[in-house]
Design a protein around this nucleic acid. Structure first.
Lengths: 328, 328
DNA sequence: TTGAAAGCGCTAACAG
DNA sequence: CTGTTAGCGCTTTCAA
């Protein structure tokens, strides 16, 4: 095992001091004569020197690392978000420490504790317990941006959940459906609440059934079966997430219902899966890339004031709502 | 901004030396009197001390961090794998640095370079260029396990791609289909090659069309359209990945073909999406959790001999092949 | 333009 | 059982 090549080795090989090697590697803070620089560069080549990020971080610089905490990386929506965050972070010279909290508050806090020990530059977090998480991070003196559920104070980025849910339901109403049920998210989840409110606002005085379910495929499946089994089954369903909509599609198929002919569907998220489902899902598209970029930028800009962003969402019309149902 | 609390602060608060604090925090290597330990524990509480992982790593210990390199974290299969790796790593007290290479060799190598600078304990990698990656990691003196495509030497974990493809095709043959096409992976990809071979072995002398396509939903869509548009369209298709099968389903729907009645489908991977597609996909299931656990264990066990694991896959029968097509 | 040296926060000898 | 101290590899004053 070749021992680690250090700056001292390079200095010796180049016949200079460690300081000069550092100046060359970092392009500063002191200038270096061209000839000397070349000797150092050669020495680095010859020795196969690779700067040690750990030591660099210790001496005071940053770790060039961001933390990302999501409820479940296997969930396609979070995976897409993670991809966007990773790409943005990389473009900014940062690496991403991934933490998947399994939607569990204890494990989320434990994960944050670990990230804090790693001295990360900041963390992008989709939290189950925003206030607790915020408190911990504050105490650890670490920058953070909340996506979705957010604490009272500090930076957060969300989307117009209520408006989106309203638009989705409205679209269904325009199709002429009256009985539009909701497969909502978990009770108590702030994002879920907002979407519930949007749906309620659009429904007005109409008969309106809904169920609380987790934001999972299975949640959608179970919720759909319950709704479809009622005395007056819905003509249309607004699913509060794409994952749930996938489960709803499966349930409809199992019940022998054709979407959109027997049951129209609109959903929320706009993950890739929504475009490729059969039938393709009419959905409220979240600006995933924009959210990721905004979050990373906010984390990295040390002079930025806290933001409370609420981004717009867009209705993407596909087949599941009944539009263009003429096509196969 | 409260300044970072250090071991020295705790030592002062507890009226002991830094060494004792270290002994208490790490439970060794020297014993500490119960009374003293208690005072230190109290001081830690009072000061809100949090050990600095960076300094710890520098002094010689490990970083307690593993790297994970995947072609695309937004791809559901890799996301599931990432989730499994993260969970296993966490159970072993490690954190995961995530790197998504965009299926690009240059960026993969650049990412590895970054990981090396982070002094990670080891890396789990799904590589586009195994030999180059291996060389770089060897030079960086870093432990690694390759998943899927692997270099000539060193540890790797794969599945029986040929056997799985054979079983999938065989199952279709048993249904009585004769013209079974293949939507294969990219030309030159070793995993794709193995699945191609398995399909060919099962097909024997039969007429056998196939296309090379990326392992993406879009690849499946495009490949399916090509196959379905031929003079003698297939009765069944074996898709080399779940993602491609999703695209294939979409293409079949667009062409007005019903799966499995007009076109039977079997696929490879067994990601969650395969179970919830409509119709549900008969697939060759990869042991994702087992792969992740094996990989992490191999990385962490410093005395382990290199492994060349080829895990078994299992045919999971669902609807898309035509079995139990009696049900809606 | 270059070099010497003081730490960053921590662990682990080595003494007491 | 506890304290002192020498680094880990690097950046950055401060001098030369």
């Amino acid at each position: 095992m070749a021992d680690r090549v250090t700056q001292a080795d390079v200095a010796k090989a180049a016949g200079t001091s460690m300081a000069v090697v550092s100046y060359v590697v970092n392009g500063g803070p002191r200038p270096v004569a061209t000839a000397t620089r070349q000797r150092v560069l050669d020495a680095i080549q010859r020795t196969g020197y690779r700067p040690d990020g750990i030591a660099r971080a210790l001496v005071g610089g940053s770790t060039l690392t961001l933390g990302l905490v999501v409820p479940d990386i296997a969930n396609e929506f979070f995976a897409e978000l993670a991809g966007a965050v990773e790409q943005t972070a990389r473009a900014a010279g940062r690496t991403v420490l991934l933490a998947s909290s399994e939607g569990n508050t204890d494990s989320e806090l434990a994960l944050l504790e670990t990230l804090l020990q790693r001295r990360i530059d900041g963390v992008v977090i989709i939290s189950q317990a925003p206030e607790l998480a915020d408190e911990l991070l504050e105490q650890g003196n670490t920058r953070r941006v909340f996506l979705g559920a957010a604490p009272e104070h500090g930076s957060s980025i969300g989307v117009d959940n209520t408006g989106g849910a309203f638009a989705a339901t409205q679209h269904l109403l325009e199709h002429g459906y009256e009985r539009i049920a909701l497969i909502g998210g978990p009770a108590g989840d702030s994002v879920a609440e907002d979407r519930l409110i949007g749906w309620q606002q659009a429904m007005g005085d109409r008969e309106a059934h809904f169920v609380h379910q987790p934001f999972t495929v299975d949640g959608g499946y179970v919720g759909a079966l319950e709704l479809l089994g009622s005395a007056t089954p819905p003509q249309a369903v607004f699913a509060a997430s794409d994952r749930q909509a996938i489960g709803l599609l499966r349930a409809a198929a199992d019940e022998g219902l054709s979407v959109p002919d027997d049951l129209a569907v609109v959903t929320f998220d706009g993950s890739a899966a929504s475009a490729y489902a059969v039938p393709s899902l009419t959905t409220i598209q979240q600006p995933i890339t924009e959210m990721a970029e905004l979050a990373v930028r906010q984390l990295l800009d040390l002079h930025a004031d806290p933001i409370r962003a609420v981004l717009d969402v867009a209705l993407v019309v596909r087949r599941s709502c009944g539009c263009s149902s003429a096509r196969p």
